[in-house]
Design a binder for these strands. Structure first.
Lengths: 314, 314
DNA sequence: ACGGGCGATGCCGAAATGGCAGCACACCGT
DNA sequence: ACGGTGTGCTGCCATTTCGGCATCGCCCGT
């Protein structure tokens, strides 16, 4: 329905190069080039600055780009809305997520929703914390399952669940018997750390500003799965929300000791949506389901059992 | 930039007929028809119900229609934004207004803004009160200069000015010497009325519910200009804001006696914008100017002088 | 100096678009 | 009963637009 030039323009801006964009679009670069030139002629201003290594949007280009992307997003949402008129929800849901949610919790939710609504497709991306704001505000994603942080602007929290960041370790670790820990108490014990530490940076700076002591990470990685194996093999303590390690904790393979620092003990995971954005039917569906499942985990999120318990299953 | 089918689709929905739309678009009806058919094929659902006297959007058509119109509006706004990058503001401002503002106040403001910003064009429409909500929310208009009314939903008031609805009459009218009036006191005197009475209906129902007395309009019209002449010739009392009769009141040709009814004495004129709508540069410009000029009239709006005064002009 | 990247352009075939005339159907007034 | 008029729809054809290929001129790194 929408003119091809919208897609062309978007791709050119993304790739910073007409030829790259044409390649990604599987059309001749000359075709893309001419569409851009025609568009600039129509607008009466240059939309790109031609550099030696490609193109870069001008101020006018940025403005038009925002309109083009908003149009494409709204079109997808409208298509999903129309397709869902028949009763069966369909369309794509785009979610950005904490990696810890992504490796254990979300796959299950996606599986359940997917089974009941086979025409819904899912795009679930782990995002670097520094990109959360942009990822949400760009409109490319429907919502995020993230730590609630007052620093986020232009974002609405439509559901939130308390959780606690804690020290994750083997049951035979010296600190495994504690009911809570401060970061200072972890000094001296080897720790493993995510490369993007998110909350920890600020807290650690505060905690150790006087003593000069520091946690010395023995292992640093950006992969939660790698950390999981490292912690299970006893290489050190990791700092995580329990949500990504539900099974290990339940089976008693790992122990989660909440941190006493207020900013960490009272962490909240929330569903965040760009403000003023209309949600597509599949996005609403998915949000409902996630809220429901997170609600069922509420006790576990806030204070996971220290010893595995048998639970009745329905 | 945008595909022609957007305009076709919009026109067909507006005219309720493919041939009428094609006529308005100055293209062959077959072309429009094929575009609509192709669009329905692309969407996979019927967008119009074919009746014997034309077409009517289906539920899916309504959804797509909203997207199409929003896209067109946003495109215009974006173009205005880009055109204004060069320093000179340009683009179209679409304003809906009380008729009383439209006949005296707004022409002057438009004249001033137009003189300073020759590339700005203006669309100023008087709207029937019953259509205000729809006219604002449709996104077809940038803002409204209207009575502030809590009944409006999805509308933000970004500036407001107190005014008072009052009885407008010749200086030689028996009631012209009063400092304020109730509607009941007007019973027995001939009155003239706008056909769309807006605020008056509710107030009158309340005022006269006990007594059974009624104002008997001698003249009813939907034209303020007609009312102006009728009142000046002494045919009766009219009920208006002073804003449309500034000159007559200043020259002493008419007298404005505020009504004592709280709902009318405390009326407010405001600049109303659809919530969450981004304003185009010319719209922002126009709003600033209107606010400034209305602010200068603030004393006059709330309590116009009973006798003409000489004022210093800058 | 040269090769490889970039955007822009001329040429040509393919695809899309629009105009014209005509079809089938339903309504309305005579 | 019957044209007249309105509707949406459909072949047929001219025109316009679009895309692919090859090429040019440019700049940069090697």
């Amino acid at each position: 329905m929408h003119a091809a030039v919208l897609r062309y323009f978007d791709h050119v801006a993304r790739h910073g190069s007409i030829r790259k964009a044409a390649d990604a679009l599987s059309v001749a670069s000359s075709a893309v080039n001419r569409q851009i030139l025609r568009l600039e002629d129509e607008m009466g201003v240059a939309l790109f600055e031609r550099g030696r290594s490609g193109v870069r949007p001008t101020a006018a280009g940025e403005l038009l780009l925002r309109h083009v992307r908003e149009t494409q997003n709204e079109y997808q949402r409208t298509r999903a809305e129309i397709a869902s008129l028949g009763g069966t929800v369909s369309g794509d849901v785009r979610i950005i997520s904490l990696e810890s949610m992504l490796v254990r919790f979300l796959p299950q939710v996606v599986d359940e929703v997917s089974a009941r609504h086979p025409k819904v497709t899912f795009t679930v991306l782990a995002v670097h914390p520094s990109e959360i704001g942009e990822a949400l505000r760009s409109g490319d994603n429907d919502f995020g399952v993230l730590f609630v942080d007052a620093r986020h602007r232009g974002v609405d929290v439509i559901a939130e669940f308390p959780t606690s960041v804690g020290a994750l370790m083997r049951p035979d670790h010296p600190l495994a018997g504690r009911k809570s820990l401060t970061l200072t108490e972890c000094v001296g014990h080897p720790v493993v750390m995510l490369q993007d530490r998110w909350l920890l940076d600020a807290i650690m700076a505060m905690e150790f500003s006087g003593s000069g002591a520091r946690l010395s990470p023995r292992v640093v990685s950006n992969s939660i799965e790698f950390m999981r194996q490292v912690i299970r093999s006893g290489l050190g303590i990791g700092f995580f929300t329990p949500i990504g390690f539900i099974e290990e904790i339940r089976r008693g393979e790992l122990v989660h000791v909440p941190l006493a620092e207020p900013g960490l003990a009272q962490s909240r995971i929330g569903i965040l949506v760009p403000r003023y954005r209309r949600l597509s039917p599949p996005a609403r569906l998915m949000i409902n389901h996630i809220s429901e499942r997170l609600g069922a985990f509420a006790d576990f999120l806030a204070a996971p059992p220290r010893r595995p318990k048998r639970r009745n299953r329905g």
